[in-house]
């Protein structure tokens, strides 16, 4: 296997507060290879967005990377600041946000925003950049791209706007794209279009995509591999078929079972009791143990389980299925 595009090693993000240091991301490690979509899934407060922001260098103060490494094709980037980081962002890493309206400048035409981005990152003439911009809009499926290039963001519909954001993220041909809940604000029909678009572009361009979402359905549909996060840690990491089909972590199975599905025909939904612990009140040991019906003494003791300490796929001392031969 070739070198991964993105390598995250033992990433820890800390937020110092007056009640002590919180760790919204705690010891997270994963790789994304060329042309692969890694789905990062979790409920609110799981640290999934924070992980994405840490990778692209957009942590809001006072949050900071406390330890660990982030490697982009082998080069460490977690210590970069200011100009160096800015050049990397856009050129080698693209970002797609949940709300397309806030990630576009309302005062500039989409053509201007695209050509500016291209000119900033690629050594091309203005005329070439404009052509590229048109091609980028065309590629994300905006009809009559050459005519729409002079339009302002508010003249596009929600789905079209998200396409523009995708074009903007991809126009400088980055190796990595981080998509943070890209379809959450969209309707079902448009969501399906955007997922299909992301998948196509990822495959055609060989871009590595980190798809952050709370929706297991979106993950199942789009991702090649899945990282399930809980309370800032990885609960489970593996190929999508295995994680969705043969989940090992009780949290993953609970998550799956609590999604209503009439084909199972149950009258009551399975439910996970309680809710995610607050970062300032994390339990000892496995953070999931107070909600887990399989918890035993070992689960309540520190140190809690981690992927490496367990079977490499689920951070659980007593995983649901026995390990099977699936190359990750």
């Amino acid at each position: 296997m070739s070198e991964p595009v993105l390598s995250v090693r033992d990433l820890v993000v800390e937020i110092p507060t007056r009640r002590g240091i919180l760790r919204p991301v705690d010891g997270v490690s994963y790789d994304i290879t060329k042309g692969e979509i890694l789905g990062v899934v979790g409920e609110s407060g799981a640290g999934k967005s924070m992980t994405g922001n840490a990778v692209i260098g957009l942590l809001d103060r006072p949050a900071r990377i406390a330890s660990g490494e982030i490697l982009l094709t082998g080069e460490p980037i977690h210590h970069l600041k200011g100009e160096a980081l800015r050049r990397l962002r856009g050129r080698r890493m693209g970002m797609i946000f949940q709300d397309p309206l806030t990630s576009l400048n309302p005062l500039l035409t989409v053509g201007d925003q695209l050509t500016e981005t291209i000119l900033e990152h690629l050594p091309v003439s203005r005329a070439k950049a404009l052509n590229r911009a048109v091609a980028a809009l065309d590629e994300v499926g905006i009809p009559a791209a050459r005519q729409r290039i002079g339009s302002y963001p508010h003249e596009f519909s929600g789905g079209m706007r998200q396409r523009v954001v995708i074009a903007l993220a991809l126009c400088a041909e980055p190796e990595l794209v981080i998509a943070d809940e890209p379809t959450t604000a969209l309707d079902v029909s448009v969501q399906a279009q955007i997922i299909a678009l992301l998948k196509r572009l990822c495959r055609e361009r060989g871009v590595a995509v980190m798809l952050v979402t709370h929706d297991m359905g979106v993950i199942a549909e789009a991702a090649d591999r899945v990282a399930v996060m809980y309370a800032g840690r990885l609960a489970e990491l593996g190929p999508v078929r295995d994680v969705v089909g043969r989940a090992r972590h009780p949290y993953t199975t609970g998550l799956m079972a609590s999604t209503p599905d009439a084909s199972r025909g149950q009258r009551r939904l399975r439910q996970i009791p309680g809710s995610m612990p607050r970062l300032d009140a994390l339990p000892e040991g496995c953070p999931f143990h107070p909600r887990c019906d399989r918890a035993e003494v070992r689960c309540r003791q520190a140190p809690g389980p981690s992927l490496t300490a367990c079977d490499g796929r689920a951070a659980c001392w007593f995983p649901m299925h026995q390990p099977e031969e699936t190359p990750a």
């Binding site: 519909s157 929600g158 789905g159 079209m160 309707d187 079902v188 029909s189 448009v190 969501q191 399906a192 279009q193 997922i195 299909a196 929706d215 297991m216 359905g217 979106v218 199942a220 549909e221 999508v240 078929r241 969705v244 799956m256 999604t259 599905d261």
Partner: peptide
């Protein structure tokens, strides 16, 4: 609507997404 809704058993499903908005 039914076709577009994401499904848990739809790994790598390649369907033509719905048209328009």
């Amino acid at each position: 609507l039914f076709a577009a809704a994401p499904r848990m058993d739809a790994f790598g499903r390649e369907v033509e997404p719905p048209k328009g908005e």
